[in-house]
Design a protein around this nucleic acid. Structure first.
Length: 874
RNA sequence: GGAGACGUAGCUCAGUCGGUUAGAGCGCUCGCUUCACAUGCGAGAGGUCUAGGGUUCGAGUCCCUACGCCUCCACCA
């Protein structure tokens, strides 16, 4: 039997361990069954579980468990990402604590240290996922630096190279001067700041006293200028085009050229061109064949091409301005709002720098990746994210994939020092295929972490081998991820899957939002406003955390998370626990019949019908990825229909002495509870398994129980209508008591006039018990009542409670008047509608009829209310 | 500058294909130690659906405009 209080600590971990020990998360490879697969967005090996993961993985586990119960062969493929920069940072920080740098160790030794760190402290997140209840097949866990996955990376690199989709080029790239590596456009964060705009002038060569005035936010780059540009439409300045000007301090002459990049309305109209340090200027330089002058070292200090060698850019900027000023060349300095690029990990200013790097021809790969979404082969949920996807894909730039780091997949390019030949190869090269030379060096660079992540949906399943897993589980069914990594990851997986597997990597992309704090702010370490999911689990259990994350969320939109939400979830778990206890306590020692063999009461038929509708709603919403709504459907049914009404309806029966009725009622209770825990299992796996263990008719783990199905037979519309009337009667009596100030426990007599009195009679027991009624008298007309009464009008019946049994008359009159007002409003609304010729002619007939019926009903109610108010006064 | 969302009760949000007296949770008010649960039970109060215009017999829902708020992308003169 369930313990008296719900305490998830007593069973959650035990249950998970038992599942894992039994191998319950492994798919059986029976090919006759449909496959269902999801690959986990691999958490960083350095990661610890935060709310974002908790949401992401809860959603996946819900889908996985739901589909497993649907009878599919389910694989949730887990694994971790080696997280190039992030991991290298962590290990370097550890080394720094011992006073050493990676360079002290050397490359090989350093990588060894990273592996050691990984074995010892990496991947703690996997155990946290277990604690969350994630039903991944851990026996298949992969790591992006595994031998198998590394093989996939090399194979893909070589094949892209052969197809001309990967190339090496000397280009201007985003340079991170802290890590001294190139980064991709996506790793650059633009930050708004108020900086300075510096206005100064370059002397025109050979024309004493003539100047060209320019404006820049980065004066120190002037040593890399190789031209000044002016628009040919710039009437004021175009006379300067063709002349030369002198870069002060270094006294270097550069041409003044005509280029459209120089917008006459911006700055001074003349713009200095620094092709080696600005993306726009680089293009200008290309158009005019300008030389490139690099002025920066890899650590972003100025180099020997400048007079300020060794200084960082800020110091050099100051020095440049001072020098220009002393030469009398400064015009002015103004505050200037601007956007400055920072590295997303390093948080230092990103400098455009000319370097040799490897690129993926993303624009070419994007074509097919857009087509499969346009054609509907792949779908984003919600669909609005497709627009964002297209927008980005249309403007995609070549992807810089090389990183000057140590931790990662080393680029499989080999250079022969004897003949200079470059060889791209899946396997290590020791002899030059061209000259036979043996002085071979492998490229020093490693690949962007996202390069291997992009292969994740197939590399984890065995690619490049054609494994059974790959054939059976690829393409995967759905990818679940936050919108923050659509470009980093999702887009790249799509074009990679199409290129290397020739098929989409997943059919659907379910996008979820961010978990924010109660004020809508992002949860962040620096703000300290984050809620730690592991703490929530420790305090309230994993089911509560999962429920609080899944309840009421909508695809694609952010959610606010708060202690109140957690408490709400905990309360629901408690409710389920106690309702189950009620059912199980009453079922103890009883024979449980199949519901179809039971003689169902009105209440039984009602709850079975409601349950059936809930099964349908939950299932439909699950199929639409509306897990938040599905869970609401279930919540409403469990709390309102089952607990608040049905369980109360069963009490008079269970505490009665009709054994047959008791058996049937208990059987229905068990049936409903059994269905509830199955529907709830994907959301709250532990509590449902714990209850399942105590079910009298259980058959093994609920994980693989058959998911409930809509049953056409369980649709008792008459019973539903009757119970709705019954509920109205009970509520009315309670309402009268509350409004007149009578104690709820005060027993009253109830007189009822009703057309369908017989039906209500059958429910008399419920009314007495639930509304606190001592006797019910059915009368044909109010005139039969001698005493003064309080009355209540509901659809199909009138209720009268003798006044003597109640207290406050005034309150009763107020109540009736309020009621009358409502009804008058409704009559006005309905008659307005019915007077509308257009409505009568054009609206569907059933709606018009319904409106007429409503009108008649309200008129009837008004007449009765008016009479009652009169009676009360008289 | 380009794109995309959003605006409904005090707060957080649902609201399907345009059609029931616009719903829920939390909070609030009143009353209840009722034999599963006070993490509970019962009864309530609270809304000009941001504003204006349009389409329609009918608009919270569709279209346009404005205002407000948010996000993403681009942008170092």
């Amino acid at each position: 039997m369930l313990e008296k209080t719900y305490d998830p600590k007593n069973f959650e971990e035990k249950i998970y361990a038992a599942w894992e020990a039994k191998g319950a998360f492994k798919p059986n490879m029976n090919k006759n069954k449909a496959a269902y697969s999801i690959v986990i967005p691999p958490p960083n090996v350095t990661g610890v579980l935060h709310m974002g993961h908790a949401l992401n993985d809860t959603l996946q586990d819900i889908l996985i468990r739901y589909n497993r119960m649907q009878g599919k062969n389910v694989l949730w493929q887990p694994g971790m990402d080696h997280a190039g920069i992030a991991t290298q940072m962590v290990v370097e920080r550890n080394l720094a604590a011992q006073g050493i740098t990676r360079h002290d160790l050397g490359r090989e030794k350093f990588i060894e240290t990273v592996w050691q760190w990984k074995e010892k402290s990496g991947g703690s997140i996997c155990n946290q996922l277990r604690r969350l209840g994630a039903s991944c097949d851990w026996s298949r866990a992969r790591f992006t630096m595994d031998e198998g996955l590394s093989r996939a990376v090399r194979k893909v690199f070589v094949s892209l190279y052969k197809d001309g989709l990967i190339y090496k080029a000397k280009k201007l790239v985003n340079w991170d001067s802290k890590f001294m590596t190139a980064v991709s456009d996506l790793e650059v964060i633009q930050k708004e700041t108020v900086g300075k705009m510096y206005y100064y002038k370059y002397p025109i060569k050979g024309e004493e006293g003539e100047f060209v005035h320019i404006a820049t936010t980065r004066p120190e780059t002037m040593f890399g200028d190789t031209a000044v540009a002016i628009s040919k439409d710039n009437e004021k300045l175009k006379h300067l085009i063709g002349k030369e000007c002198i870069i002060p301090i270094i006294n270097k002459a550069i041409p003044i050229i005509a280029d459209e990049h120089a917008d006459p309305t911006k700055g001074t109209g003349a713009v200095k061109i620094t092709p080696a340090h600005d993306f726009n200027d680089f293009e200008v330089g290309k158009r005019h064949n300008l030389p490139l002058v690099n002025i920066l070292n890899p650590d972003a200090t100025l180099n020997e091409n400048t007079p300020f060698e060794g200084m960082d850019t800020q110091t050099a900027r100051k020095k440049t301005i001072e020098t220009l000023d002393s030469l009398g060349l400064m015009d002015k300095i103004e505050d200037h709002p601007m956007v400055i690029p920072y590295g997303d990990r390093s948080n230092v200013v990103i400098e455009p720098l000319m370097t040799d790097q490897w690129f993926v021809d993303a624009p070419k790969l994007a074509v097919e990746a857009m087509r499969v979404v346009e054609s509907g082969d792949m779908e984003f949920v919600p669909k609005s994210y497709e627009k964002i996807y297209f927008e980005w894909m249309r403007n995609i730039q070549p992807w810089c994939i090389s990183r000057q780091l140590w931790w990662g997949h080393r680029i499989p390019a080999y250079y022969c020092d004897d003949c200079g030949e470059m060889t791209i190869s899946k396997i290590g090269v020791t002899v030059c295929p061209k000259c036979g030379g043996t002085h071979i060096r492998q490229d020093e660079d490693v690949l962007d972490t996202w390069f291997s992540s992009a292969l994740w949906p197939f590399s984890t399943l065995g690619f490049p081998e054609e494994t059974e897993d790959l054939k059976y589980f690829y393409p995967t069914d759905v990818l679940v991820t936050g919108y923050d990594i659509i470009f980093f990851w999702v887009a790249r997986m799509i074009f990679s899957g199409l290129e290397h597997m020739k098929r989409i990597p997943f059919k659907d992309v379910l996008i979820h939002g961010l978990v924010r704090d109660s004020q809508g702010r992002k949860m962040s370490k620096s703000l300290g406003n984050g809620i730690d999911p592991t703490e929530v689990i420790a305090k309230y259990g994993a089911d509560t955390l999962r429920f609080s994350l899944a309840f009421g969320i909508a695809p694609g939109s952010d959610m606010r998370f708060s202690d109140e939400k957690i408490e709400g979830a905990r309360n629901f778990m408690n409710k389920v626990w106690n309702a189950s206890r009620f059912v199980l306590l009453n079922a103890e020692g009883k024979t449980i019949k199949n519901v179809k063999d039971c003689k169902l009461s009105v209440a039984d038929k009602w709850i079975v019908t409601k349950l059936n509708k809930t099964v349908r709603d939950v299932t439909l919403n699950m199929e639409k990825y509306e897990m938040g709504i599905a869970l609401s459907n279930l919540y409403d049914f469990v709390w309102n229909d089952f607990c608040d009404w049905y369980i109360e309806f069963t009490k008079p029966v269970l505490y009665g002495d009709d054994e047959n009725k008791i058996t049937d009622t208990v059987s229905v209770l068990i049936f409903v509870l059994d269905t509830i825990i199955k529907l709830l299992h994907p959301f709250a796996p532990f509590i449902t398994e714990q209850i399942n263990k105590n079910m009298p008719n259980r058959s093994g783990s609920i994980m693989v129980a058959e998911y409930p199905r809509y049953d056409i037979k369980h649709n008792y519309s008459v019973a539903v209508a009757e119970v709705e009337t019954l509920k109205e009667i009970i509520k009315s009596v309670r309402n009268v008591k509350a409004k007149t100030g009578a104690a709820p426990s005060k027993k009253v007599n109830l007189f009822i006039t009703a057309e369908k009195a017989q039906r209500i009679k059958a429910c008399a027991l419920y009314i007495k018990k639930l509304a606190g009624v001592s006797e019910i008298f059915f009368i044909s007309d109010k005139s039969e009542l001698k005493e003064k009464v309080v009355s209540q009008v509901i659809s199909g019946a009138e209720l009268y409670i003798p006044l003597g049994e109640l207290v406050d008359l005034k309150k009763e009159e107020e109540r009736l008047n309020k009621e009358l007002e409502n009804v008058e409003n409704e009559i006005a609304r309905a008659s307005g509608k019915l007077a509308n010729k257009g409505f009568l002619e054009k609206a569907p007939k059933n709606l018009v009829d319904a409106e007429r019926e409503k009108y008649d009903k309200f008129i009837d109610m008004r007449n009765k209310l008016v009479k009652q108010i009169k009676d009360l006064k008289g």
